[in-house]
């Protein structure tokens, strides 16, 4: 029954809704699915500016950022989040998006650094899988040692 901190460490994911639309059902469904997959989800609610999202991601030290957007302002808001994360030294934190995003906008968003865009109807398991595969490994120096080993 050995536990390493690394093995026990849940992923921390920020789920945010940029822009002005007031529908957060999709975001909440994702949040619950990630929780049920054993992740710690920081949910910040509606009408977040890219600045607020980047500030929350920074302080919460998240492993990934998920943005749900229905307002149509994705082409300006999503790349801005990526840019702000980079400015904060969090360029390796993947940003994924969901909501109503036309197919023709996806290549541009990916070029701007959005890791993936999940359309309506994407199976939740696919999103969970994506996060598990794309979060960067933690600076894991000494991750084999437990606190107890450290004390001796």
């Amino acid at each position: 029954m050995t536990q390493t901190p690394e093995a026990a460490r849940p992923l921390r994911i920020l789920i945010a809704k940029p822009g002005l639309d007031g529908h957060d059902r999709g975001a909440k469904v994702i949040a619950r699915a990630l929780r049920d997959a054993g992740m710690e989800v920081i949910y910040t609610g509606l009408r977040q500016t890219p600045e607020m999202i980047a500030a929350a991601a920074l302080q919460e030290d998240v492993d990934a950022v998920g943005l749900s957007i229905l307002s149509g302002a994705h082409n300006t808001l999503l790349p801005r989040v990526v840019e702000l994360l980079r400015q904060n030294g969090m360029g390796d934190v993947p940003v994924f998006a969901g909501g109503i995003i036309p197919d023709e906008d996806v290549p541009g968003l990916k070029a701007a650094g959005i890791a993936e865009v999940f359309g309506p109807g994407t199976p939740l398991s696919e999103i969970v899988q994506f996060i598990r595969e794309h979060t960067p490994p933690r600076h894991a120096v000494g991750h084999q040692s437990s606190i107890i080993n450290h004390q001796s």
């Binding site: 929780r35 997959a37 989800v41 949910y43 910040t44 609610g45 607020m52």
Partner: peptide, 13 residues
């Protein structure tokens, strides 16, 4: 599941 939804930030925006 060991997961959690942490929503206190909603009140601190």
């Amino acid at each position: 599941t060991g997961g959690a939804i942490l929503g206190d930030r909603i009140r601190m925006r």
